[in-house]
């Protein structure tokens, strides 16, 4: 078995009276792609946000390579620098060029020289076919291009873990493919990924492990063939049937 990157133990999170996460246990190993599926409001996005410490958990532990990052003594910014996040609405900075978006963390968090950061940024953008857009501003790009630029921004500093939060949900259908292709490439390169997604076919195709969340709990998890092919739980079957019909 390969090394454990992320371990969640009994994660609880409430917003007011509403318990969004009610005890989540999950292990993610290096080079593994884990897909979180479930209805809206099942806690997928909240779970991703807690991993990146954007939400404070109410109970449980989050271990990143064995270090308890939910400990308040651990500096949150340093933890976040080790984890890349891609959001549903891209969240590119509109006042910065695509290249500046991509090199921002390298230059201002990791204190790399502008030259080094930009060389790597242009190289990365070139690999996804956006080199000629490096100096453009995000609003000149299509949604798919913006989201691919956002992915490059997240991986530009070689994070140990990449979180993808429904990254194709805001895209036009014909632009979904190019973004998913990029995720496939990242998987081929060995990136460790946890992604919340509504793209069942994609999850089945790319994920090594699929987790079905229902009402803040893991209702079922397993390899994609088993979870999609022969779901054990009635709730999983019901959820999947709504997607397949």
């Amino acid at each position: 078995m390969s090394e454990v990157v992320l371990q969640l133990q009994g994660i609880h999170k409430s917003f007011g009276d509403r318990e969004v996460l009610r005890g989540i246990d999950l292990t993610v190993r290096t080079h593994e792609v884990v897909a979180l599926i479930g209805a809206s409001g099942s806690g997928k996005s909240t779970l991703l946000r807690t991993i990146n410490l954007l939400e404070r958990i109410d109970d449980g532990q989050i271990l990143l390579r064995g270090q308890d990052i939910s400990d308040p003594r651990v500096p949150a910014d340093a933890v976040r620098a080790r984890i890349g996040v891609v959001f549903q609405h891209y969240n590119l900075f509109p006042h910065l060029s695509v290249l500046d978006n991509v090199t921002l963390a390298a230059r201002h968090v990791f204190r790399e020289s502008r030259q080094d950061a930009e060389a790597r940024g242009i190289d990365l953008l070139g690999r996804i076919g956006l080199a000629e857009h490096a100096r453009s501003f995000p609003d000149r790009l299509s949604g798919g291009q913006q989201q691919r630029a956002a992915i490059v921004r997240a991986i530009a500093t070689n994070p140990e873990l990449l979180l993808l939060d429904e990254i194709t949900s805001a895209l036009d259908p014909e632009l979904v493919g190019e973004v998913l292709d990029l995720v496939r490439e990242l998987k081929a390169e060995g990136t460790t990924i946890v992604m919340a997604t509504h793209e069942m076919a994609f999850a089945r195709d790319v994920a090594d492990h699929v987790v079905f969340l229902d009402q803040g709990l893991i209702a079922e998890q397993g390899p994609p063939e088993q979870l999609f092919g022969a779901p054990r739980e009635p709730r999983t079957r019901e959820f999947l049937s709504r997607f397949l019909s």
């Binding site: 009994g10 109410d58 109970d59 308040p72």
Partner: peptide, 12 residues
Amino acid sequence: PSSIELGRRAFR
């Protein structure tokens, strides 16, 4: 709350 969470709260 677990003892870990209680410890975190005490620290905060």
